[in-house]
Computed example of a mutant assay.
Amino acid sequence: MEKELLLECQRNDRNAQRKVYEKMAGRLYTVCKRYLKNDEDIEEVLADTFYKIFTKLNQLQNHDIFEAWARKIAVNECLQKLRSMKALDISLEDDFVESTGSPTDSISFEKDILKLLNFLPEGCRAIFNLFAIEGYPHKEIATMLSISEGTSKSQLNFARKKLQELLVNHNI
C-alpha cells in the first residue's frame, strides 16, 4: 500500500479511505469468508474491520506492513464475532456443519478448499485457518482462543483428517 495514501487516510481524507477500501475489501472479504459463513456476518465484520483500520491507522509505525496488519485486524474481528456467536465451543465430538449446496460446485481448487472448510465445525475451522493459512503457532492460537495448546493441536489434526476425507469423498 502506498505510504502517501495511508498518510492521507490518517488525516481522515475520505477519498483516500475509499481507495484503501477498494484495494483491500476483496482481500479482507476472503479472509472473513474463511472464518464466517453468513454473508451478513461477513459484511458486519468487514465494516468493523475497516472502522478499526481507519481509527487506529495512526498507531501503525511501519506502513510497509499495512496489509498484514489489516489482515490481522480482520482475523481478530472474525474471532470476536465467532466468540459472540458462541461458535467456538471446541469439541472433537462436533459433527460436520450443515452447508447448502455441494462442496464440488466450484471450478478452482482454492475455492473447493474454502467450500470444504464450511463443512468443519466452527472452532475447528478457526484453528485450521489460524494455523495453516494465517501461520500462527499453536501457543498463540491457544492464547487467542483461551484454550490449551494441546486442544489447538488436536483440533488441527481433526480438521486435517476431515478435510482429507472430504477431498477423497468428493474427488477433489
Rank of each mutant, 00 (worst) to 15 (best):
E2G: 02
E2S: 08
E4D: 09
L5I: 01
L7V: 06
L7I: 08
Q10G: 14
R11P: 11
D13K: 05
N15Y: 04
R18Y: 07
K19Y: 09
K19A: 13
Y21H: 09
E22L: 08
E22C: 03
G26M: 02
R27A: 12
L28Q: 03
T30C: 15
K37Q: 11
D39L: 12
E40T: 07
E44F: 04
V45G: 10
A47Y: 08
A47Q: 14
F50G: 14
K52N: 12
N58P: 05
N58Y: 08
Q59K: 13
N62V: 03
H63C: 04
H63V: 05
A68W: 03
W69M: 06
A70G: 08
A70K: 01
R71F: 05
E77R: 15
E77L: 04
K81Q: 13
K81L: 08
K81G: 04
R83N: 10
S84R: 13
M85T: 00
A87Q: 07
D89V: 00
I90C: 11
I90M: 12
L92R: 11
D95Y: 03
V97Y: 12
E98M: 11
T100C: 15
S102Q: 13
P103R: 06
E110L: 05
D112L: 00
D112S: 06
I113E: 12
L116H: 05
L116Q: 04
L117M: 01
F119G: 04
L120P: 04
L120Y: 04
L120A: 01
L120Q: 02
E122S: 11
G123N: 08
I127A: 07
F128S: 07
F128I: 05
E134W: 06
G135K: 05
E140D: 14
T143C: 02
I147V: 09
E149W: 00
Q155K: 00
L156G: 00
L156M: 02
F158M: 07
R160V: 10
K162Q: 06
K162L: 11
Q164F: 00
L166P: 03
I172R: 09
I172E: 02
